[in-house]
């Protein structure tokens, strides 16, 4: 019953191997075997975005994604992979500078979704920002600051690309 399978993939740039149970989701895998708690199961229903993980370049809800769906060789990124000890990512910096959070619980998910948005729309308008973030909920209601953070992050990314 419930045979474990071994998957080798890349986690935040580093090669890893995990023993995955069929009924575990991606959040359980990341927390249980890798101690990564940036993606946290909250609504558990795909609605809030707190469990956002990037799999092969696409944002998914880790709460609804079976860990066994990962292919060998998959590339998985979480919020923990964005910064270096010396520097935050432009999106992280922008969230700090605009104070786009209060408790910070929702922040990892927002930051990863904003990364996706800016990869596709480096210069997003407000409608595009809202479209990308409809699936991210903030209990502290920092939405106006988040909008500001996205605009600032877009500027920072462009400046970074130009530099």
């Amino acid at each position: 019953m419930s045979a474990t399978k071994t998957i080798s993939f890349t986690l935040n740039g580093a090669p890893v191997t995990a023993d995955v149970k069929p009924h575990h989701n991606l959040v359980e895998l990341l927390q249980g075997q890798f101690g990564l708690t940036g993606a946290r199961e909250t609504c558990g229903q795909g609605l809030c975005g707190c469990c956002t993980v990037i799999v092969d370049g696409l944002a998914v809800s880790g709460c609804l994604y079976l860990a066994a769906f990962l292919n060998d060789g998959a590339e998985v990124s979480t919020v923990e992979g964005l910064d270096t000890p010396a520097k935050l990512s432009p999106v992280q910096e922008a969230f700090v500078e605009t104070a786009a959070f209060q408790c910070g619980y929702c922040t990892p998910g927002f930051i990863l979704m904003v990364g996706q948005l800016l990869d596709e729309h480096p210069d997003p308008d407000d409608d595009q920002i809202k479209h990308y973030l409809t699936g991210n909920l903030c209990r502290c209601a920092t939405y106006p600051q988040v909008m500001e953070a996205v605009r600032l992050a877009a500027k920072k990314r462009k400046a970074g690309a130009a530099a």
């Binding site: 795909g46 944002a59 994604y65 979704m113 990308y132």
Partner: peptide, 12 residues
């Protein structure tokens, strides 16, 4: 599709 669920769900 624009108003069907959210991007993470549509990705999967």
């Amino acid at each position: 599709l624009k108003t069907l669920s959210n991007i993470r769900v549509r990705n999967v």
